[in-house]
């Protein structure tokens, strides 16, 4: 039984690590903000959950510990979609246009804001040329 638990948590840790790395890689590779958001979701959901389940198996039946890990998992489950949605929503109402379609073309579909009112700086762009320097 101990062996089963050991190998199960080994598997969970390996899979969780894989998904965490996958999410991070997607965050780096994907072409625009909206697609990167999906990649970050991979880490938040499956990667974190698998690692937390692995930790639960390793907790040696210390149920206070298990409860805490479960609370963390539940909390991530509730907050991560809310944060992702609010980032996406802020980008959308801020006028950041997504790349759409197979050719990843810009589509000027983000909602227009009243441009005369309360001018603020661009939410996007600006540091385009900064990438090489940093």
């Amino acid at each position: 039984m101990d062996n089963v638990i050991h190998y199960a948590s080994l598997f969970l840790f390996a899979a969780g690590s894989f998904f965490v790395i996958t999410g991070a890689l997607g965050l780096l590779r994907f072409p625009d903000f909206y697609t990167r958001m999906h990649a970050s979701g991979v880490t938040d959901t499956l990667g974190a959950d698998l690692i937390l389940w692995g930790m639960i198996l390793q907790a040696d039946g210390d149920w206070l510990l298990i409860a805490k890990l479960l609370i963390i998992m539940l909390f991530l489950m509730f907050t991560s979609p809310v944060s992702t949605h609010s980032i996406a929503h802020a980008a959308w109402v801020g006028g950041l246009n997504p790349l759409l379609g197979k050719e990843l073309k810009h589509h000027d579909i983000a909602p227009d804001r009243d441009e005369t009112k309360a001018p603020v700086e661009m939410p996007g762009g600006e540091e385009q040329n900064k990438g090489g320097a940093a």
């Binding site: 072409p31 801020g94 006028g95 950041l96 804001r113 309360a118 603020v120 939410p123 762009g125």
Partner: peptide, 17 residues
């Protein structure tokens, strides 16, 4: 009520960031 102005720069990061 102060809605921010539509920001619209070139925010695509290039294919591989």
């Amino acid at each position: 009520d102060m809605s921010p102005r539509l920001g619209n720069g070139n925010h695509d990061g290039g294919a591989d960031g």
